[in-house]
Design a protein around this nucleic acid. Sequence first.
DNA 1: GCCGTTTTCGGCCCGACTGTTTTCAGTCG
Length: 582
Amino acid sequence: MATNHSLVALFRELAQLATLDEGSANSFRVRAYENAVEAIASHPGDLGQLSERELTKIDGIGSSTARKIREFFQNGSIGKLEELRRKFPPEFVALGRIPGIGPKTLLRLRDELGVTNVDTLAAALAGRKLRSLPGLGVKTEEKILQSIGRLRAAGFEPGAEQPRVPIAKAMPIVRELTAALAAVPAVEDVQYCGALRRLDETTGTVDIVAATLEPLAAHAAFASQQAVAKVLDRDAVTTSVETATGLRVDLHTVDPERFGVACLLRTGSPEHVAKLRSCAAERGFTLDESGLLDADGEVIASVSEDAIYEALGLAPIAPPLREDRGEIEHAEKGALPPPILLPQVRGDLHVHTTLSGDGRSTLEEILDAAAARGYEYLAITDHAEDLAINGATREQLTAQRRQIDGLRGRHPGLTLLHGSELNIDRDGDVDYDEAFRHTLDWCVASVHSHFDLDRSQQTRRILRAMDDPTVHVIGHLSGRRIGTRMGIELDVDQVLQKAVATGTAIEINAALPRLDASSEVLYRARGMDVTFVISTDTHHTREFARMEWGVLHATRGWVDPDRVANLWPRARFLDWLHSRRA
DNA sequence: GCCGTTTTCGGCCCGACTGTTTTCAGTCG
């Protein structure tokens, strides 16, 4: 249910802050909050309709969580969360993103050295204060200094309160708001714009454009949404709000005649729009809020974005491409890579079941969900044994193999591949022995550890994994978590060349916190014979829906659809798979 | 904080690695 997204975000934050409060991510309270997130996210109905008593009947929600949920629907906030936010200000919480600093160390730094933000941390490091604390030493100081340096080099400012919000955090709330607006009878059309629509990794203020002849109704409906914590500003055409999660969202209403141009201008990027304007000028036109105008000031196009591009002599340009990376020049020549569309996807090749410690759906549920999406093929890839909590032993995988064989008749149109998500260790070796791996149909190999190695070491381990004949694809190439964890640094050109040489595919991980490989890496690969697969890394049946983001992300990276293996018909895909294994 | 119960507290999942130790705490996935 759409309106549960705010709750999910709030309980996630609660879990994060409780980790600090409890001094451990493994505390039972923290895990209870995480279970609550899972329970809320999985609940199909509107939780706002349920009483406290009914809420506690849901698995994973007890009396305390039920009370907090009711509190949210009544007050728009949760007292416990407000209290923790006061106790742990954002600039302090942000220090927890520095690799090597866990909750215990962070609290000690605050209590014993007065560290509250990146500046006081830097001062403590400069004064060599950390080594004076029992249990910490010179190595710890060096490691933290190095982490800060690396984060800064990558554009992260560890102590800064992030002005930009990671896409995974913003998207669900914005989707909820646009869905609510779409349901307002007076609203003819609605679209979220800006960085979010371009599928950029982070967003600032989100702009939503609504086409309506009755703006008052739209603004009233918007301001009264459950996700809205407070209205910041309001005039005849714009309402600015802050959500319960701290995201700023502006609703702009326009006459339906100008919906297209409003979306175009608010989607950006600013560089793309600037180039469009000069493109218009070359043709004797102008582009402003009222539309594309000819020399006489007559509107030539304004209702739809496509009409504006067409009037400029351009093929339509998909929002993720609008970054002024040559898309306008390509559109002039009709040479733009076609956008990848969701219905073109024929299979998913990175999927977990409950055999993975963090998997939430059973094998049967996964198969049914994949069949319901109309997939022709599916790879089951539970975690391999070296992933401490989550991994499957070879005996478990062998048993799963038999289970899968027994289920092949369940959905005759769905070809099942049995595989695993292997762990690339620090040297580039993967789990199990090669003979056993050869019994698997499909192996994803991913980095889950040793994020602190340097670029040449990281590159070496990836290249070595690609040389392994049993590895079909490298999963989430950098291992990043947008806004939370930097990925590993790689010599991307070497990795791409190796992908071509070995035929190892590169995964385009569709999970919004990952979007990995990054669109920069994908863009770099254009023109090369790199094979890609777009995968959801599903741990719960609902996550199959992430494929929507995967295809947009691939489009953003200028990926040629013909290079994406899971868009191929089954026969072609299986031919490729078998030729690789030969 | 949740759950289950011979109803009201005790159990809830872990293993490798690192840096600091001299037997272990903290971090990570």
